[in-house]
Design a protein around this nucleic acid. Sequence first.
DNA 1: ACCTGAACACCGTTCAAGT
DNA 2: ACCTGAACACCGTTCAAGT
Lengths: 236, 236
Amino acid sequence: MAEQAGTARRTPLSRERILRTAIALADAAGIGSLSMRNLAQELGVVPMALYKHVANKDELLDAMIDMVVGEIDTPMPDTEWKQAIRGRILSARSALQRHPWAALAIESRNMATPAILGYLDSVVATLRSGGLSADLAHHVMHAMGSRVLGFSQELFDTTRDAGRSGPSTAPQPAAMPPEVAARFPHLAEIATAASHDDASVVGSGCDDQFEFEFALDLLLDGIERLQQQGWTSAHR
Amino acid sequence: MAEQAGTARRTPLSRERILRTAIALADAAGIGSLSMRNLAQELGVVPMALYKHVANKDELLDAMIDMVVGEIDTPMPDTEWKQAIRGRILSARSALQRHPWAALAIESRNMATPAILGYLDSVVATLRSGGLSADLAHHVMHAMGSRVLGFSQELFDTTRDAGRSGPSTAPQPAAMPPEVAARFPHLAEIATAASHDDASVVGSGCDDQFEFEFALDLLLDGIERLQQQGWTSAHR
DNA sequence: ACCTGAACACCGTTCAAGT
DNA sequence: ACCTGAACACCGTTCAAGT
């Protein structure tokens, strides 16, 4: 008891320490098991003590999100726009992968945090400096959607939240049971079709990174083509 | 009291009635305010009575999702694959728009419900019948992600859940305040750039339908191009 | 056998009492 | 003035008691 009080005193409560602990807790056990009460317990503190440093749980989540967004690389100057955007988005993706709870947290909030706005602003700046019209850049940002932040709603995403332990466990989806394959033959067919690593991969183990980059490049290439054609929304 | 008992007896509790009431409640008040307890109250029933018809809340949500997915149009035969997919996805979109809570509900569950699998299977069937290789179809399904179900994580999506009243209110994002515009000049620029309806639209009021179709067509056109080039993932 | 009220183990947050 | 325990109004679900 005296021990704990001593420890708490050595590293007193602060917004910084609350945020770091909250993120560590969400990383380890999933956002679903992050509560004000067990966060306080983890910090060796009474729940109400947290409210000195954060207004409420929503504000805590916003601050956690901002901290993750802060991990995204700053833009590399003097890079061709398509490569610059590509690199930036892949950096965002790896930041979000370090914190598997973040994507869902961003989605369920209304997400106009300053850090996110700053990041988006810099992405638009890159597009504009690459010669895209403001009009096209607008639609491009919509088309990218959450992908610009490094995530997209994959169907059957096993890595999202789900409580489980850290991201390293990487729970592969179980191979499709025969009766399911029989009911959904076309899904069964394409599940085994993609030659990701080698032909021995059967159904399970999609290469998420490959799929993300495939979709990203599909969009970026399409955008580049539109730009070169001088596309404007007046086409409508 | 006797009145209520009489009413409850006239339309006795059933899985069907529970689901319809739950969906109506989520439509009206948001998924956040759907609880087993107030669903029971809405039905004039004690909370525990629900558990005769649904195993638990998770199973209830799955069943609600399946009912929404059931609203998606069945595929039109003898249609060129790109148009068939396009029409199907836009139908999925309008189904999800009728139930604004559904997209977030689908995302936060692991979403391998039978209805969703059946829908996805039929989409793959259309791709295959259009001549896409199983390999390409696989990556296409990944690239489409949740868009194939008619939604995508838009940045600043105001229509998602948020509790509010029905979808008809359509809360437009407030125009960007001057101090925000000053901090994020590139966002401010593109916010006013898109000539959606006419030049008088300033910052607010993006045409969601236009943006959705813009991104969808960007992907579909890119996919068609890959198919015509005989693309395979062996390119890696 | 069926139904259901009370209870359990949570939650975020308020508020008044204690120092 | 500061801190915090108890309390409030919830939640999903268990379980035993009542019919």
